[in-house]
Design a protein around this nucleic acid. Structure first.
Length: 835
RNA sequence: GGGGGAGUGGCGAAAUGGCAGACGCGCAUGCCUUAGGAGCAUGUGCCUUAACAGGCGUGUGGGUUCGAAUCCCACCUUCCCCA
């Protein structure tokens, strides 16, 4: 830094205390943050006479260290919206908390031997400070921390209610297993197929896991009628749920395994006469029974290899499909044909029935597979003009049934139903609806989470912990040790307990709940933060829920946002709430990236504290909101922040100008002009804020700021209308830059917080002017612009257009074909050469 | 592999069927200043032109329309999420 620079900033600091002329964020931001908190102006009462409640919720953060710039992006926008709604006259509740269970705390424990609890609560402390420095309008009396026993107790309680009502169950699931460490691994702990710690190749292994029965709600989750959500989120959820209608059909294998059949599911039963092979997933239970002695060795090797592959690899279309014969055959019930049974790792045991029928002529994957293994390709849906020759690729579209026995000649669309009817009549299978959605696996083999309240007793089996014994507490000390096992599995005080039923010695469940359970109902606890005997108070839920407006990233489209909807529907059916959907309106903010990549504490850091220190919280908030459309995110760069610094400096300057230099009345034209700008600004800002278009709101306010400066400079507006304009500017700026707006509100003689004031109003009739500029096009190309009276009729507009100088030139030698007038906007004259 | 976005000046962007580039950054020139990493004013898509004016222009190729950044079809690039 140069000497000049140093002395300048030094003098800034020196003057700051008494020179109120200069905008110095550090001098005002802390002051107002303290005052707002002391006065509790953002604390929401459950009922306020004459005001409608508005629950404005933003997805709460995971406290992984600093609140980073991405959080600032998210929370600046959502806070501006909550403030805007408050100024619209709503009784706004805008809570904040911490989603504090989860893997990063465990990683800190694993890497640095820290206690995840200490690590987490230290981070929370730091995050609270940053939230305050942001100037968020949060109601901190409602704060919740999901790793507090008062909170996770209710996760356990809901788990038990779900268990009682058939919505929670335990069954075998595939987990990552490290054979050396003898432990399960989270997906994140598997790097390139090997154990993160010891480098051993990780295998898939079946272990009992807990599930929530979300698939019971698959159809209701497909219905979005009651909620105002972005189309893209609804599309993602719809695709994720993946409802498809089709037919199951069994292929008899009793020749090789008595009494058994292979169940397959297909959406194209019309092609069933074209089945020339059947493929099983390597994990399919029939694999062992069907494999013939000659194939045994090869099949075992193939199955072992498949266990090492990820699903990505196995289902990738880039990779060549592989398969291996079992040596067994099955019978196609439709035509009695005997077709080979193969094993292919591109078939997943967890999807559908874990077996597919191979129809190479009408499925491209099967086609390539059949070519490779020299299997028959039989056309059963004839393409139009098909001469009976070999196909170059699978024919997917509809056609005419051929080689399909009694169904030959039918259009395949009719063949679909006719064949399905026959299958159902003969009880070979039935029409079925399947979903891509699977039940929600809630077991985590981790230690920083909600303990699942279950006890295993040798005599009584799986026993639920009685509600009166909740919460099942996490042990105080959770030190991770080098063997890779969860501390819960080794802590005798936690592990050893007595059976609630028979009183004998028993072991606790050591799995913890997925952290998405915490976030599935946290909004209800915000609405009702205090009860200790119930998860929440019904009257408070009625006052606030469902959430009026919810904001968060679209990366949660198919996990959190689907789980929460399921959770709400389940709670409704169990009698806890009386509404169907948890979040009425959803808005996604985009992702803030830096240098083209996601911001991350480790690999791509961007700490906000230095920026706040240099420019102030208001400047940073506005800059982030000005970067671009909030719902599309933005690419951070330091270069533009000066624009916001200048703008706030100009507001600071204009608001404190001496109005006594202006007269008690101004010129008609200038008054009218300022009035129009004022009402137009309010119209634009109110509309844009409602749509989370903060960038264009700020652009409108920048223009208005300039307008007010010029009006004052020119001196031809009245003091009263100029001052009213300044008030309007401050009120609109308040949600975006809350500290400076509050400071200037006070300095310009107002009493009470600007944040409890109401938005200005506008009169649309005052936003228009007497004349408009019409664009004149010839052949759709702009040729001139003319000034005309605002209410001009079509004929006069076209006449005026035709007499514009530059237009005359372009009409020369042309015959007019058509004249188009778009009221208030343009005239387009369509011509052709006049012979 | 599946799913969802996004491509517009040197840069962030605006405009959702009607004047492409509002607003801001940066840059240039000028004013003010002992000074400027301050402030103010003016200009700034590219090409041709002394000027008037004209041509080109919203990732690429096609289409619909009097008129397309915007709607439709195909493709390319890129980001995010899930497995």
């Amino acid at each position: 830094m140069t000497t000049t620079g140093k002395s300048r900033s030094g003098s800034d600091r020196g003057e700051a205390g008494n020179d109120s002329k200069r905008y110095t964020p550090a001098n005002i931001e802390k002051k107002w943050q303290a005052k707002w908190e002391k006065d509790g102006i953002y604390n929401a009462a459950d009922h306020v006479e004459g005001k409608e409640n508005f629950f404005s919720l933003v997805m709460f953060p995971y406290p992984s260290g600093d609140i980073h710039m991405g959080h600032w992006f998210q929370y600046s926008g959502s806070d501006a919206y909550a403030r805007f709604k408050r100024m619209q006259g709503y009784n706004v509740m805008h809570p904040q908390g911490f989603d504090s269970f989860g893997l990063p705390a465990e990683n800190a424990a694993i890497e640095h031997g820290e206690d995840p609890r200490e690590w987490t609560y230290l981070n929370i402390e730091n995050s609270r400070r940053q939230f305050r420095e942001m100037g968020g309008s949060y109601d901190w009396t409602r704060e919740l921390v999901t790793s507090d026993p008062e909170y996770y107790k209710w996760n356990q309680y809901f788990f038990l209610q779900f268990l009682k009502n058939g919505l929670a169950y335990r069954k075998d699931g595939q987990v990552n297993w490290c054979p050396k460490d003898q432990t399960t691994l989270a997906n994140e702990q598997v790097k390139d197929g090997v154990c993160e710690r010891c480098g051993t190749i990780v295998v898939k292994r079946a272990l009992p896991q807990w599930y929530f029965a979300i698939t019971k709600y698959a159809d209701e989750l497909l219905n979005f009628d009651q909620i105002d959500w972005p189309e893209k989120i609804k599309t993602m959820q719809t695709n994720w749920i993946g409802r498809s209608t089709g037919t199951t059909i069994g292929f008899d294998v009793s020749e090789f395994a008595s009494g058994e059949q292979i169940d397959t599911f297909t959406t194209r039963i019309d092609t069933v006469y074209g089945v020339t092979f059947v493929v099983l997933a390597p994990e399919h239970p029939l694999v062992r029974k069907l494999t013939q002695p000659s194939q045994k060795e090869a099949v075992e090797a193939y199955v072992a290899n498949a266990a090492l592959q990820t699903e990505i690899d196995r289902t990738s279309t880039e990779r060549e499909k592989t398969g291996i014969a079992t040596g067994a055959y099955c019978i196609n019930p439709l035509n009695g044909e005997r077709v080979p049974v193969l094993i292919g790792d591109y078939v997943l045991a967890t999807y559908g029935t874990g077996a597919v029928m191979g129809v190479p002529a009408h499925d491209q994957r099967d086609f390539i597979f059949a070519k490779k293994y020299d299997l028959e390709i039989r056309v059963v849906i004839s393409p139009p003009d098909w001469g009976g020759g070999e196909l170059d690729e699978a024919w997917i579209p509809a056609g005419t049934q051929v080689n399909s026995g009694e169904f030959d000649g039918l259009p395949s669309r009719e063949g679909f139903d006719a064949i399905a009817d026959k299958i159902e009549a003969n009880k070979w299978g039935e029409r079925t609806i399947t979903y891509h959605l699977r039940d929600w696996l809630i077991s985590r083999q981790r230690f920083w989470g909600t303990p699942i309240p279950i006890v295993y007793c040798d005599d009584c089996g799986t026993v639920a912990v009685p509600e009166k014994d909740l919460p099942v507490l996490l042990p105080d000390s959770l030190k991770f040790e080098a063997d890779g096992k969860s501390p819960l599995t080794k802590d005798p005080n936690f592990l050893n307990t007595t059976c609630p039923d028979c009183g004998k010695a028993a072991k606790r469940e050591t799995d913890t709940l997925d952290t998405f359970v915490c976030s599935s109902w946290y909004h209800l606890r915000f609405a009702s933060p205090n009860p200790s005997e119930d998860p929440f108070d019904d009257d408070q839920i009625r006052a606030w829920a469902p959430v009026t407006a919810y904001q968060g990233g679209s990366e949660h489209a198919v996990m959190h946002l689907l789980y929460s909807r399921f959770f709400n529907m389940a709670l409704r059916d169990l009698g806890y709430v009386d509404f169907d959907e948890p979040y009425t309106k959803l808005t996604n903010q985009g992702m803030l990236i830096k240098d083209g990549k996601k911001i991350s504490k480790r690999s791509n850091p961007l700490p906000p504290d230095p920026v706040v220190e240099k420019h102030g919280a208001d400047t940073l908030r506005c800059y982030l909101m000005f970067l671009g459309p909030w719902d599309q995110g933005g690419d951070w760069s330091d270069s533009g922040i000066n624009g916001i610094t200048r703008w706030l400096g100009r507001i600071w300057d204009v608001a404190q100008r001496d109005e006594s230099v202006l007269g008690s009345s101004g010129s008609d034209e200038a008054e009218r002009d300022l009035e129009r700008a004022s009402h137009l600004t309010t119209q634009r800002v109110l509309a844009d804020m409602e749509l989370f278009k903060f960038n264009t709101s700020i652009a409108a306010l920048m223009e208005f700021t300039t307008k007010l400066m010029r009006s004052h400079d020119s001196g031809d507006v009245s003091a009263a209308s100029w001052r009213a304009g300044v008030d309007r500017l401050l009120l609109h700026t308040a949600p975006l830059a809350p500290h400076i707006a509050e400071e200037l509100w006070e300095r310009t003689g107002h009493s009470g917080s600007i944040h409890l004031a109401l938005n200005p109003e506008f009169d649309e009739s005052l936003t228009t002017s007497d004349t408009i500029t019409l664009a004149i096009q010839v052949q759709g190309k702009l040729r001139d612009q003319i000034e005309v009276p605002a209410g001009i009729d079509e004929a006069s507009a076209i006449a005026a257009a035709k007499s514009a100088e530059n237009v005359i030139r372009h009409l020369e030698g042309m015959a007019i074909v058509k004249e188009i007038y778009v009221p208030g906007r343009l005239v387009n004259i369509v011509v052709r050469p006049a012979n």
